[in-house]
């Protein structure tokens, strides 16, 4: 049975089993490889995408639960060729090391700022704690999110 899904503004009709995790539909059916597989159990956050505006772990979200919904991935975060402010901050702060977790980190941070444009440091830490980074880039992530947060005094600092 065909299943409808809108990903980064583009509507798709997909012929996939309903229990397939959203992650593998995004990656292998739609070819959007920026969303990563890390643990398959919602423990690491590498697969974070937005479903109807909420961050979800796509590795443990059956695609049938997303049917008819709006999905946003790292590829759709900026506007066309424009980078999202967080992506710009990630580059300026030189956040990524191996980089494998960073799509998920950025998607978590993007949801935080969309729902709370002026988060406190504690808000940021709480929002980012579900995303593991094995390389240990946490302080650069924090600095990058803070540089974009509204009212940030160091938004120009590189």
């Amino acid at each position: 049975m065909a299943l409808r899904l809108t990903v980064n503004g583009v509507q798709h009709s997909l012929d996939v089993e309903g229990d397939t995790p959203l992650l593998w539909v995004i990656r292998d059916e739609l070819g959007l490889k920026g969303t990563k597989f890390g643990c398959g159990a919602g423990l690491c956050g590498a697969c974070t995408v937005h479903l109807n505006g909420q961050p979800v772990r796509s590795c443990s979200t059956p695609v049938e639960m997303a049917a008819g919904g709006q999905v946003q991935t790292i590829e759709g975060l900026g506007g066309g060729d424009q980078l999202h402010a967080l992506q710009q901050a990630w580059i300026e702060q030189g956040v990524p090391q191996c980089g494998y977790c960073q799509s998920g980190q950025i998607m978590s941070a993007a949801h935080l700022l969309a729902s709370n444009p002026a988060p406190s440091r504690d808000d940021i830490v709480a929002a980012m704690t579900g995303n593991l980074c094995r390389c240990g880039t946490y302080s650069r992530i924090l600095a990058a999110v803070e540089s974009v947060a509204a009212g940030s005094s160091n938004s120009q600092e590189v």
Binding site: I74, W90, G99
Partner: peptide
């Protein structure tokens, strides 16, 4: 800065698992 930061912040860096 890091020369690979952009690719790794936009989801375009190709890891082994991304090969198609």
């Amino acid at each position: 800065g890091r020369l690979d930061a952009r690719a790794k912040s936009t989801g375009t860096a190709v890891y082994g698992i991304d090969v198609e």
